[in-house]
Each structure stands twice: as C-alpha cells, then as structure tokens.
Simulated assay, not measured.
Amino acid sequence: MNTVLVTGAAGFIGMHACARLLARGDTVVGIDNLNTYYDPALKEARLARLLPHPNFRFERLDIADRPALPELFARVRPTRVLHLAAQAGVRYSIDQPHAYVDANLAGFVNLLEACRAWPVEHLVYASSSSVYGGNTRLPFSEADAVDHPISLYAATKKSNELMAHTYSHLFQLPTTGLRFFTVYGPWGRPDMALFQFTQAILAGQTIDVYGQGQLVRDFTYIDDIVEGVLRVLDKPATPDPAFDPQAPHPGRGQAPYRVFNIGNNQPTVLMDYIAAIEAALGVQASKRLLPVQPGDMTATAADTRALAEWVGFAPGTPVSEGVARFVQWFKEFYAA
C-alpha cells in the first residue's frame, strides 16, 4: 500500500485523483492552501467528499512555504507524490504574474527539494498543453520544441519540466510531467468555459465567445485524466535507452524523466462545445462573439501515442457525454 501525497487536493483534478486513490486502497495525504483564486466554498465542498474516508488526511499548507514541506514529508513519509497544486489560468497570469512565480516556480522547487531529501519513488506533476504556445503544427507531440510560450502561465509550466529534468539528472529522482489538455467535468473550476457558459445560460445571460467561436480545444474528461494519471503514477519514469544526446527528444532523457501529453485526441471547435452545452441544458444561448484574448492559443490537439505506449491507455470520453455529466452535476450541486 502506498502513501501518496497529493498537492492541490481541494482542486478539481486533485479531488478526483484523491477519491480514486482512496478507492483502490492507498493512503492519501492531501494538502492545499485553499486560496481565493476562485470560490473557496467549492474547494471546501470537494474536501467534504474526502474527509470522511479513514485513509485520507488533509493539511492546509502552501507549497511556497519553504520550511513547511520538509517537515510534512518527515511526518507523513510519502512513497509517491502527485503534484497538482499551481496557480492556474492563462489570462490571470497577465495581471498577477507574481502569483505564478510564487506557486509555480518557488513552490515547485520547494517540492523538488523535499522529494530529493526524502526521497520518493516517483514524482508526477501537472504540466499543461499551454507549453506548446506558438506552435501551429497539430496534433502537438512531445517531440516538438516548446520554446515559444505566449503566456507567463505557460512559461512557468515549461520551467517546471526543465526543473524536474535537472533533479532527475542530478539526483536520479524519477519525475513525470503530464501536459493536460483542457480538463472538464463535474466539480470543475468556475474560471473554465464550461462552468461559465452553463452558469450564464441558466441565468439567461449572454455568453462571451472568444475567437469568434472558432478556437479549437482538445477537451479531456476528468475521469479519463485521472485514469491516465494513476497509471503513470504507478510506473516511475526511467531513462530512455534509445536517447540520443546528439538529437535529444524533449520528452525523455538519459535521466529517469518523462513528459507525456494527456488529451482526448478529438479536437473540438468551441462553437460545437457550446452546442453540446445547449443540448444538455435544452436552452439556446445568446452569444457575443469576441476576438481572441491575449495569451490564448487558437488551437490545441494532443498526440497521445506516447502515453498509450507507456501505460496502455488513451482518453476517449465523447464531449457530448462529458458535458452532459457536468451539466447534471451543476444543476444538482447548485440546486442544493
């Protein structure tokens, strides 16, 4: 039985991951700072689903608090770490850059140091499809260079991958980064399009549709994400025996280091995504078409072959099905 430390346990992906880990018999120690980036009441409600479990323990802790992490590791003795805590949001990073430096850079190196000192069997951390930035060749592959981020959020996530590789190389710490592609589903974040659109449509409000509704995203359902995350967590990164330092692959190396896309591999035009919401609600939305926002990518699509080869899994929940499940949750949760 593993003791898994999950950072960002009160978050969207964090809560679902904790629930799955507990269901399979792991001991889970969850940490979160419960910040006010969005309504903390939703985070508290997520936690309320986990706290009754006898194998779950929660501590309110900020990963940017350098002394707190080593002390926590010494007490809880994690065998594996799933790092999901971060300052999220592309647009928010334009106005609040220091929040990203504190959480995503300083916080991540604090965690790496704690994992190195303990040490742990495997560190799996959340990267993002945003690292592909100005790339336009689709689908995005882990073999692609990611040297042109178009938001500070993306730059911090690429930095996490570089920092992880350094620790894998210097200290033989197995690390795996997962580039999430627009995760959605029940208990989702209020700053995400699905939540905002559903809330506005039910209130009879006009929705703001950026990129004239022609943005493309590889929307990935939460259950698919968690299945992939757990499979990766159970398979610590190893050096790539075929790695060629004269033609280095960005997603692997001579160190125990891996990076994988985890997406639906079914890119969806934003207007079609909205149509799925309308169908689930039985309501036609009033739309305000707007240009692309600064920092937004025009299209994302995941090449998931490397993940499938590594752990034998590829996400596949249809958008229509996933959106319907979210809408059902939203109505039930906010009716209550």
Score class of each variant (00 low, 15 high):
residue 264 N to G: 05
residue 332 E to K: 14
residue 296 D to W: 06
residue 299 A to Q: 13
residue 299 A to R: 11
residue 268 T to F: 09
residue 311 V to Y: 12
residue 301 A to L: 06
residue 287 K to T: 06
residue 283 V to F: 07
residue 314 A to W: 08
residue 287 K to G: 02
residue 315 P to W: 05
residue 324 A to D: 02
residue 310 W to A: 03
residue 287 K to Q: 12
residue 316 G to I: 09
residue 305 R to T: 04
residue 328 Q to Y: 09
residue 288 R to T: 05
residue 311 V to D: 05
residue 288 R to L: 04
residue 265 N to T: 09
residue 281 L to D: 08
residue 290 L to S: 14
residue 315 P to T: 07
residue 263 G to Q: 05
residue 258 R to H: 01
residue 280 A to Q: 11
residue 326 F to W: 11
residue 326 F to P: 07
residue 299 A to Y: 03
residue 325 R to Y: 02
residue 259 V to A: 10
residue 284 Q to S: 12
residue 294 P to I: 08
residue 330 F to R: 08
residue 260 F to A: 00
residue 286 S to P: 00
residue 258 R to F: 00
residue 313 F to S: 02
residue 298 T to M: 11
residue 319 V to L: 15
residue 257 Y to V: 00
residue 314 A to N: 05
residue 275 A to R: 15
residue 330 F to D: 10
residue 314 A to P: 01
residue 304 T to P: 04
residue 275 A to H: 11
residue 316 G to H: 09
residue 283 V to S: 04
residue 331 K to M: 09
residue 290 L to R: 04
residue 265 N to V: 01
residue 315 P to Y: 01
residue 326 F to N: 09
residue 311 V to G: 02
residue 289 L to N: 02
residue 330 F to S: 09
residue 314 A to F: 10
residue 275 A to S: 13
residue 314 A to K: 12
residue 284 Q to G: 07
residue 276 A to S: 11
residue 323 V to E: 06
residue 287 K to A: 07
residue 287 K to I: 10
residue 315 P to L: 09
residue 269 V to K: 14
residue 295 G to N: 10
residue 268 T to E: 08
residue 325 R to D: 13
residue 263 G to D: 06
residue 317 T to K: 15
residue 276 A to I: 02
residue 272 D to T: 07
residue 318 P to A: 08
residue 286 S to M: 07
residue 289 L to G: 05
residue 304 T to Q: 10
residue 318 P to K: 15
residue 325 R to G: 04
residue 295 G to I: 03
residue 327 V to P: 10
residue 295 G to A: 02
residue 330 F to G: 06
residue 265 N to H: 13
residue 332 E to P: 00
residue 269 V to Y: 11
residue 310 W to G: 00
residue 297 M to T: 07
residue 293 Q to S: 07
residue 313 F to I: 01
residue 311 V to N: 03
residue 278 E to W: 11
residue 277 I to R: 11
residue 316 G to Q: 12
residue 258 R to Q: 00
residue 276 A to W: 10
residue 284 Q to H: 08
